[in-house]
Amino acid sequence: MTSGDNAADLWVFGYGSLIWRPGFAFEESVGAKLHGYHRSLCVFSHVHRGTPERPGLVLGLDRGGVCRGLAFRVAAAQADETVAYLRAREQATSVYLERHVPLRLDDGRRVRGLVYVADREHLQYAGKLPPQELLKLVRQGKGQSGENPDYVLQTHEHLRKMGVFDPVLAALAQELAPGLQATHPPLKG
């Protein structure tokens, strides 16, 4: 932590919908890197973007690589409330494991941040799916938080604005919204 931060402040790492819909109050948001994990559409959604009968797909942090996202600093006074909110949102079906991991902020600071990583032992862990299966699941998904294509398109657009290119999301976005600006090939499959 740097001298300007309260040692009890909470850092939260967003890599998907938390980037564009955090849902909690924060003091600052900063671009950040998380080493050891990568962003992946590897979680069958049974609540937020799908149902058990018609699952959608949402992002998880899966092992290996590096993930660029946003780190949010939450004031110490709101830390407990924020964690409770995130647990209710992210742990609806316990598909994620809560972890505190080292983050490297774009401004050079190093902090420990709260993240939710995909539990590879959970029945909703999808792993790496072929492109056409990704597209099928995303197109069919609709849950409590809305339609799955909207989730993919919103996440892709916000990552693009951050200068982050995710080839899987970009290819899906092109299939879901063919007029979208893109510099990537269509899904093959």
Rank of each mutant, 00 (worst) to 15 (best):
D119R: 14
L135H: 01
A88C: 09
T93H: 11
K136N: 14
V101R: 11
H122R: 06
V95Y: 09
V101K: 07
L134C: 10
Q124Y: 12
Q154Y: 08
V95D: 06
Y116I: 07
T93M: 14
R139T: 03
R104K: 11
R139Y: 00
Q154V: 00
L129I: 01
L134P: 06
K142C: 12
L134Y: 11
D150Y: 09
Y96W: 06
V117W: 01
L114M: 07
A92K: 10
Q132I: 00
H122Y: 08
Y116C: 09
H156C: 10
H156N: 14
P149M: 08
Y125K: 09
P130N: 06
A92T: 08
R89I: 02
L129T: 00
G108Y: 10
Q124I: 01
D150M: 08
G127W: 05
P102W: 00
Q140L: 14
E147D: 12
Y151R: 04
E133S: 03
G146C: 04
D107R: 10
E147L: 05
L103F: 03
N148K: 04
Q154T: 12
L114W: 08
G127C: 03
A92E: 05
E147F: 09
V115F: 05
Q124G: 01
T155G: 09
R104Y: 00
V138E: 11
G146L: 04
G141S: 10
D106Y: 03
T93W: 02
V117C: 14
N148R: 01
P131K: 10
Q154I: 00
G141D: 12
R99H: 13
P131L: 08
P102R: 09
R112I: 08
R89N: 07
R99K: 15
L97E: 12
E98I: 04
V138C: 10
A126H: 02
A92D: 11
R104Q: 15
R160P: 00
V111F: 01
Y125S: 08
E133K: 04
L105V: 01
L129V: 01
S94Q: 15
S94R: 15
S94H: 15
L135F: 00
H100Y: 15
L153G: 09
N148C: 13
